[in-house]
């Protein structure tokens, strides 16, 4: 049996760990709220861009923008969005696993990777995947500008014909209790069919196709940006949950160790008493 001193030392160390996990839980909860707010704040822009793009596509179906071209898929590209930091439960490994499954589903087609976030970058690099771009260390509050390079590279690869399909893998934020790794096709752009609202007769300046040329990249950017924001919200939610159960486990462990420590203490006292009694009886 472990000595009393060892047990006390272990209790102390578990208590210290618990303090950290509790603090991390609170921080993650606060950050999750802010991440959710940012997700909401990004919505008006994304909705407007999507609305205008759909409207435009309906009118000028003749124009084939390079980002709309559907080609036979010979090479693919995955944008893998993960967190920069771990200690977020199975969040990152779920995303990475989904990304790998996606790659293995088409084993004959070479697949390149654009990584957003350190965790995905590191583990995919260890597996020897081919990278075309990386944007990591984006923090809790990335601006579109910080993430833009990743999207630019993916779009360039597509327009140059280096890849024939681009997907995004990220963790969708369903609720504080549920995050799901998701794959979404980014390129070629599939404009969702919408029930036509009151059609607005827009004038275009200089011309409809010029407007489309400028609009489509931003449509793609808005989609990726939203995915990153969702991933951040998911990250914080997952961390909050993971740290909550870690704190609970620490409580259990402390209770266990305390019980053992008390037993050891009592056993020692009993033994000492017996010795005293035996000694006085002999004397």
């Amino acid at each position: 049996m472990a000595s009393l001193l060892d047990l006390r030392r272990r209790i102390k160390s578990v208590k210290n760990t618990q303090k950290i996990t509790k603090a991390m839980e609170l921080v993650a909860a606060a950050k999750m709220r802010r991440a959710q707010e940012r997700l909401l704040a990004a919505r008006p822009y994304a909705d407007e861009i999507a609305g205008v793009t759909e409207e435009l596509m309906r009118r000028s179906s003749g124009h084939r923008h390079p980002l709309l071209q559907v080609r036979e898929v010979r090479r693919r590209c995955l944008i893998v969005i993960t967190a920069d930091r771990g200690l977020a439960g199975a969040l990152n490994s779920n995303t990475i696993r989904l990304a790998l499954r996606e790659m293995n589903s088409t084993p004959d087609i070479p697949c390149s990777v654009v990584s957003v976030g350190r965790k995905g970058r590191d583990s995919l690099r260890r597996m020897g995947k081919q990278f075309v771009a990386d944007v990591s260390s984006y923090g809790d509050r990335p601006t579109l500008g910080e993430l833009l390079p990743a999207m630019r590279v993916a779009m360039q690869e597509y327009t140059r014909g280096e890849v024939d399909r681009v997907d995004v893998v990220y963790s969708q934020f369903a609720s504080a209790g549920r995050q799901e790794a998701t794959v979404q096709c980014l390129l070629p752009i599939a404009i969702p069919e919408v029930a036509s609202g009151p059609a607005v007769d827009f004038e275009y300046e200089p011309e409809a196709r010029d407007v489309i040329d400028a609009l489509l990249p931003r449509y793609v950017e808005a989609q990726v940006y939203r995915a990153v924001l969702e991933n951040i919200a998911s990250e914080q939610a997952a961390r909050m949950l993971a740290m909550h159960s870690a704190s609970d486990n620490a409580s259990d462990l402390i209770a266990d160790l305390t019980l053992t420590a008390n037993k050891v203490r009592q056993a020692t006292i009993t033994t000492e008493l017996m010795e005293v009694v035996a000694g006085s009886a002999a004397g």
Binding site: R38, A41, A42, P44, Y45, E48, L144, E205, P206, E221
Partner: peptide, 24 residues
């Protein structure tokens, strides 16, 4: 008048007149 960016809504208010820097 509404001014929105990818990061959020910057402005939303009434106005008599707006000047924007069009491409042309």
């Amino acid at each position: 008048v509404e001014l929105v960016t990818a990061e959020g809504r910057v402005l939303s208010e009434e106005a008599d007149f707006v000047v924007v820097p069009g491409k042309d």
